[in-house]
Design a protein around this nucleic acid. Structure first.
Length: 639
RNA sequence: GCCCACGUAGCUCAGUAGGUAGAGCACAUCCUUGGUAAGGAUGAGGUCACCGGUUCAACCCCGGUCGUGGGCUCCA
């Protein structure tokens, strides 16, 4: 009855409480502000609801929306709130799962009638009503049979399916007329959620992510404890929309995708083409510096080649259909590797030749299901900065380190500084010997350790032919994109019987590394567009400066400047249109051109140039030589 | 591929109980020669994604196809 328990707080202090005290009670006494903000309590490392009773000595800490765990609770309860509202409006709706996600939460709902954005308001209204009711959210533990009969009674078939597979303790949370199967934890009452929520969109999602299952309607939404936070989040979404590479691609005339050409096939317009050329040139030069040889290979080859490589087996669903030429089947290439191997095999290789590093800007075609295509990010024809390294076992370690450093150098030059790195190890189905896998995995891991970079291990996530390192880059608004991949391959050397002559005069099989740094140029370009919001740094900008003569009598001088700057290798244009200066400046700003060079009477007379920097405004007068130098410095600094 | 939504001028979007369409920007011509984010006038521009059906009549209703978007799944 009067049992006391000792609770340890994060600052190390220890207090005594009556056994059975709840988190809510403790935090009420402790700190009124925290009491308002706390969404849950962590007891000995386990996240729990505030109203749960504590009966043992423990270390405790309260979590708020500022903590990951706190947000989890907040959004989880928000998901229940939304489901509750949906059930009130559509009692026949059946509930799937409704977890918190990165920026909010969703709930999968089985309902014959499609939910449309027009319904959002009604759902939000009902949610607000439930918040006003401030219904206590009560946990109840259930026996399996009890849970089954309860959810059967209320017709929640999908929940039944979940219960049948549950091994842990079964619990449900009830708020007023709504009960949901749930592990929890939750906020103490619906009023604690507040009204700063918003339904964002609705999309189809297969029950349990399996396309053989029924398609449910997934309602996405978000919620925040404060109005301002919700507004900021919505603002971020707006920002992301503004940066959308598909929108910018059109506005800046970089590329297009056209119906009569085909889905997932990119047309690079002149400005996009310029930027691509710069990306390629830089990339190729750096590859030469790093000991690679540039090669070119065809876009199609006999189907037989792809049988040898095994692609017709394990890669079949991603390949375009073969075409017949002179009664022989040919295949559009989905990868470059077999060609690189064929070049390797065009003559005898000695251990003295290794490592051999073949590099290609290889254009490949892959069949992607229509629903997954997305601007430049997911296409059916793309060009990879692809390379294959053939080396000995002894060289593997050094090669991986080289590749890793090279990758990071390239990515950093393009303006990315944050990375997420994953090491994927041997999956259940694999080729090669466990010993080879181990040594290759060790080599990858050693390289990562030496680099001093943080990385995560994805156990069993390797490709069947070898372990790999994937590098994701983070863009300015915090989204991550996978571009680079470094993969060890035990499969192809075996299939093609790739060999070299060793010191001992015997034939040996080299190890093969596949690697792409930017990955797909198309996708990398898309990421760059969004990363820079279309305002490319000088070294990448399609147009680095536009010359703006104020009136026709300045054209002659402007023309001379234009020619000279072009001669100096700068990407300059001249806006000789019959428009006012303000108009031309506005346009240049919107086109995100870094420099505007204004030429009027004063400039002609003084033989100077008025320089306006995008986003900054007038920065004064410079001579042709000064502005040329300034621009070149910026270009060389690649900033 | 699947679910939902969408497809009107180069772009952004109006539009009609079913009677072959409209704005702004962009474009062309003319006027204007203008100092740091939109000068003015006139004009041209559309098989209303495509194919079929219903109807006296379809951009609108119905079916199919293609494409786009949000997701599922997969991945560079």
């Amino acid at each position: 009855m009067d049992k006391k328990i000792r609770l340890t707080f994060p600052d190390g202090s220890v207090r005594e409480y009556n056994s059975g005290v709840t988190g809510s009670e403790i935090v009420e006494q402790l700190n009124r502000r925290l009491a308002k903000e706390a969404t849950g309590i962590v007891v000995n490392g386990v996240l729990k609801s505030l109203p749960e009773h504590l009966t043992e000595d423990a270390e405790i800490r309260f979590v708020t929306f500022d903590d990951k765990e706190g947000r989890y609770v907040f959004w989880h309860s928000s998901a229940h709130l939304m489901a509750h509202a949906v059930k009130r409006l559509f009692p026949e709706a059946k509930l799937g799962i409704g977890p918190p996600i990165e920026d909010g939460f969703y709930y999968d709902i089985d309902l014959d009638r499609p939910i449309t954005p027009e319904d959002f308001e009604a759902i939000e209204k009902e949610m607000a009503k439930i918040v006003d009711e401030d219904d206590p959210i009560v946990r109840k533990e259930m026996e399996r049979d009890e849970a089954l009969s309860f959810f059967k009674k209320i017709g929640e078939d999908l929940k039944i399916e979940l219960i049948e597979e549950l091994n842990e303790e079964i619990s449900a949370y009830t708020q007023n007329d709504f009960t949901d199967l749930c592990r929890g934890p939750h906020l103490p009452s619906t009023g604690r959620i507040g009204k700063h929520f918003k339904l964002l969109n609705v999309a189809g999602a297969y029950w349990r992510g399996d396309e053989k299952n029924k398609m449910l309607q997934r309602l996405y939404a978000t919620a925040y404890p404060k109005r301002k936070m919700l507004e900021e989040h919505l603002h971020r979404l707006e920002e992301a929309k503004k940066r959308d590479h598909r929108k910018l691609g059109r506005e800046l005339d970089l590329f297009s995708i056209q119906e009569n050409i085909g889905s997932g096939l990119i047309l690079w317009h002149p400005k996009g083409g310029r930027i691509r050329r710069i990306m390629e040139q830089f990339n190729i030069e750096e590859h030469y510096k790093n000991g690679y040889e540039l090669i070119y290979t065809p876009h199609i080859a006999k189907l037989e080649l792809w049988k040898t490589s095994g692609h017709t087996g394990f890669y079949r669903e991603n390949m375009f259909s073969p075409m017949q030429v002179d009664e022989v089947d040919y295949q559009l290439k989905p990868m470059n590797c077999p060609f690189h191997i064929s070049i390797y095999q065009s003559s005898m290789r000695s251990y003295r030749d290794l490592p051999i590093r073949y590099f290609e800007m290889g254009t490949v075609y892959r069949y992607e299901r229509s629903g997954v295509l997305h601007g430049l990010m997911r296409v059916r024809g793309f060009t990879q900065d692809d390379a294959h390294i053939f080396c000995t076992q002894d060289q593997l370690n050094d090669e991986i380190i080289r590749v890793l450093n090279f990758t990071l150098y390239i990515l950093r030059t393009f303006g990315f500084s944050e990375f997420e790195i994953y090491l994927s190890t041997r999956p259940e189905k694999y080729v090669g010997t466990p010993e080879n896998w181990d040594s290759a995995t060790t080599a990858l891991q050693n390289a990562l350790d030496k680099s001093g970079l943080e990385y995560e291990i994805d156990p069993g996530e390797g490709v069947f032919y070898g372990p790999k390192i994937d590098i994701k880059i983070k863009d300015v608004i915090g989204r991550s994109w996978q571009c680079s991949t470094i993969q060890v391959d035990f499969n192809l050397p075996e299939r093609f019987n790739v060999e070299f002559t060793g010191e001992d005069g015997q034939r040996h099989q080299p190890i093969m590394i596949h690697r792409a740094l930017m990955g797909s140029l198309e996708r990398f370009f898309g990421i760059l567009i969004e990363h820079y919001g279309g305002a490319f740094p000088m070294w990448l900008a399609a147009v680095q400066a536009v010359i703006i003569p104020i009136s026709e009598r300045h054209h002659q001088y402007a023309r001379i400047l234009f020619d000279q700057m072009r001669q100096a290798g700068l990407r300059v244009e001249m806006d000789a249109r019959n428009e006012k200066m303000g108009f031309k400046i506005r346009e240049a700003e919107m086109q995100k051109i870094p420099y505007m060079l204004i030429i009027g009477d004063k400039e002609v007379e003084e033989q100077l140039i008025s320089v306006r920097r995008k986003g900054e405004g007038d920065i004064g007068k410079l001579s042709l030589q000064q502005i040329t130098e300034r621009m070149k410095e910026e270009i060389n600094a690649k900033k």
